[in-house]
Simulated scan of single mutants.
Amino acid sequence: MGIWALSEPTDTLNEEGEDGAVVAPPKAGKKKLLIIVAAAVLLLLAAGGGAFFFLGGKGDPKAEAAKAETAKAETAKHGEGSEEGAKFVDIPAMVVNIRSPDGAAHFLKVHVMLVPGTMKEEEIKEGLPLVLDAYQPFLRELRPEDLAGSAAVFRVKEELLVRTVAALGEGSVKDVLIQDLVQQ
């Protein structure tokens, strides 16, 4: 400021121009604030819409009824809706030594249950020695790499079902349920 100017600076944020006049700062702060508020509102709307879609939205009533009918048909097909209910035959846990290329000792513990088909529980229990005899060679020939991956349990389950049906007869067992499959 010049010597003749008697005015005091009004604000510390203001700057002097070339001719000594006080210049106000640009209003960029309001523009940034407006952008931030708009982004926050859009984010909240998107989150609310996503929550409604995943949690609160009702599905098509016809599709829901079709799903219920399909589930009921599956239950009836597997015999789980009968008066007796589904009975399972528990096979005692087996521990077998499995092959390893490095010669180290590897063990596999398998505990399965059988879902009876046309055979009664008592008949299946009488045939358990045959089933265990069919399982042993298969389980002993497994290698640690055969049990790796997400599809390994499915492959083992299918092979055990094939061997069970071979030992007890066609239709005797509907499914093999793997309770434990632990490799050590």
Score class of each variant (00 low, 15 high):
G2E: 09
G2K: 10
W4K: 05
A5T: 11
L13S: 07
K27S: 05
I36S: 13
I36H: 08
V37R: 04
A39Y: 03
A47D: 08
A47F: 11
G49V: 10
A51H: 03
F52P: 00
F53A: 14
G56A: 15
G57T: 15
G57H: 15
K58V: 12
G59M: 07
D60W: 07
E64D: 15
E69P: 01
E74Q: 11
T75E: 14
T75Q: 13
T75I: 11
E80T: 11
G81F: 02
K87Q: 09
F88K: 05
V96W: 03
I98C: 05
S100V: 01
P101A: 12
A104V: 04
H111L: 07
L114P: 01
P116E: 04
M119A: 15
M119K: 14
E122K: 13
E123W: 06
E123L: 08
I124A: 02
G127Q: 11
L130K: 14
L130Q: 08
L130H: 05
L132Y: 02
A134S: 09
A134M: 01
Y135T: 03
L142M: 12
P144K: 08
E145Y: 08
L147Q: 05
A148F: 09
A151M: 15
V156I: 13
V156L: 13
K157L: 07
E159A: 15
L161S: 00
V162P: 00
R163Q: 05
A167M: 01
G169M: 06
E170A: 09
E170P: 01
E170H: 02
K174R: 13
L177Q: 11
L181E: 02
V182S: 13
Q183D: 00
